[in-house]
Simulated assay, not measured.
Amino acid sequence: MDFGNMKVPKMPGLGAVTAVVTVGILGAAAVYGSANSLYNVEGGNRAIVFNRLYGIKNEVYPEGTHFAIPWIERPIIYDVRARPHLIESTSGSRDLQMVNVGLRVLTRPVPEKLPTIYRTLGQNFNESVLPSIIHETLKAVIAQYNATQLLTQREAVSREIRKILTQRAAAFNIALDDVSITNLKFNDNFTASVEAKQIAAQEAERAKYAVEKAEQDKKSAIIRAQGEAKSAELIGQAIAENPAFITLRKIEVSREIAGIVSSSRNKVLLSSKDLLLNLGTFASEGKV
């Protein structure tokens, strides 16, 4: 074959290749820089910045859009809103009763101390601090009360726990917004003894009521007997002083009988003696 007349395509020079590569690198850097130079801090959050040259900056960035040097700086976002945590702990009371206490706490990091929190505790500060200080605080407070006081003075116990726990959490730059006891459970033996005590107290109150009722019934019977005796005495005295008193009582009784008979739908035949209509005899007896 004759290769003398063949045309070989010209290859671009090294300078053109370098220019293309340079443009590509610059374009990629521009895209990376534009995508990573701005970051947003959402509502309820705060940001701190880690710089590869200086470490964690001391400045805390509020909500909004902020600038960061690409690759050199990296934002770290913290949620500074109060979050609930439920923790249970078993502690011994002063009278050696085992108590299972459930505690609900609302915690949030102190925004101004976020750089310190990140340096000492990291981002999972709640998980690394709260369980230990809550368990210790509960054991210290519960040991000051006996089982009965824990039931009757629950609000005071909750205040004492909150006071101590707030001081302990403040040492780690954590703020406590609320502390409340959600569960207070004793062992089965103590619960059974409390129920038996309540039943005995109710039985005692019921027996006391029965005794008081009997005393009142006794007083009522005495007063009733005294009244009847006084009434009999007065009736006897009236009869002795005025025999016509018996006649008056018979008239009253006959009136009552006549009223009952007249209002009845049945026909009733009674003798004059039953109706006490022979009052003339009383008049004649009065004259005698």
Rank of each mutant, 00 (worst) to 15 (best):
residue 1 M to D: 11
residue 7 K to H: 12
residue 7 K to F: 15
residue 7 K to T: 12
residue 8 V to I: 12
residue 8 V to E: 10
residue 13 G to S: 13
residue 13 G to A: 06
residue 14 L to Q: 09
residue 14 L to E: 02
residue 17 V to K: 09
residue 20 V to F: 03
residue 20 V to E: 00
residue 21 V to E: 00
residue 23 V to G: 10
residue 23 V to N: 01
residue 23 V to P: 02
residue 23 V to Y: 04
residue 24 G to D: 04
residue 24 G to I: 10
residue 26 L to Y: 03
residue 31 V to K: 13
residue 32 Y to T: 00
residue 33 G to E: 00
residue 35 A to L: 11
residue 35 A to K: 13
residue 37 S to K: 02
residue 41 V to T: 05
residue 44 G to K: 03
residue 45 N to I: 11
residue 47 A to N: 07
residue 49 V to R: 08
residue 51 N to Q: 07
residue 58 N to L: 06
residue 60 V to N: 03
residue 61 Y to C: 02
residue 65 T to L: 01
residue 68 A to L: 00
residue 69 I to F: 08
residue 69 I to G: 02
residue 71 W to I: 11
residue 72 I to D: 00
residue 73 E to A: 03
residue 79 D to A: 14
residue 80 V to A: 09
residue 82 A to S: 14
residue 85 H to I: 14
residue 86 L to A: 15
residue 88 E to F: 14
residue 88 E to N: 08
residue 89 S to E: 13
residue 90 T to I: 13
residue 91 S to A: 15
residue 92 G to T: 15
residue 94 R to C: 01
residue 101 V to P: 01
residue 102 G to M: 06
residue 106 L to M: 15
residue 108 R to W: 02
residue 109 P to G: 12
residue 111 P to I: 04
residue 112 E to R: 10
residue 114 L to A: 06
residue 116 T to M: 10
residue 124 N to L: 11
residue 129 V to Q: 05
residue 129 V to S: 03
residue 129 V to M: 07
residue 132 S to N: 14
residue 135 H to M: 12
residue 137 T to E: 05
residue 142 I to K: 04
residue 145 Y to E: 04
residue 145 Y to L: 01
residue 150 L to N: 09
residue 153 Q to G: 11
residue 154 R to L: 04
residue 156 A to G: 08
residue 160 E to K: 14
residue 162 R to D: 00
residue 162 R to G: 08
residue 163 K to M: 03
residue 165 L to A: 01
residue 165 L to N: 02
residue 165 L to G: 07
residue 173 N to S: 06
residue 174 I to N: 02
residue 174 I to S: 02
residue 175 A to T: 09
residue 180 S to K: 14
residue 183 N to Y: 06
residue 184 L to P: 07
residue 186 F to A: 09
residue 190 F to N: 01
residue 190 F to I: 01
residue 190 F to P: 09
residue 195 E to F: 06
residue 195 E to P: 12
residue 198 Q to K: 15
residue 198 Q to G: 06
residue 199 I to D: 02
residue 202 Q to D: 07
residue 203 E to R: 10
residue 203 E to M: 05
residue 205 E to M: 11
residue 205 E to R: 10
residue 208 K to T: 07
residue 211 V to W: 14
residue 212 E to V: 06
residue 213 K to I: 14
residue 218 K to Y: 15
residue 220 S to R: 15
residue 222 I to Y: 05
residue 223 I to V: 11
residue 227 G to L: 04
residue 230 K to F: 10
residue 237 Q to T: 11
residue 238 A to W: 09
residue 238 A to G: 01
residue 240 A to R: 15
residue 241 E to G: 13
residue 242 N to D: 15
residue 247 T to P: 05
residue 249 R to M: 07
residue 251 I to V: 07
residue 251 I to R: 01
residue 254 S to V: 10
residue 257 I to N: 09
residue 259 G to W: 14
residue 265 R to P: 13
residue 267 K to D: 05
residue 269 L to A: 14
residue 271 S to Y: 07
residue 272 S to C: 09
residue 272 S to Q: 13
residue 275 L to Y: 08
residue 276 L to I: 12
residue 277 L to W: 12
residue 277 L to P: 01
residue 282 F to M: 08
residue 284 S to V: 13
residue 285 E to T: 11
residue 286 G to W: 13
residue 288 V to W: 12
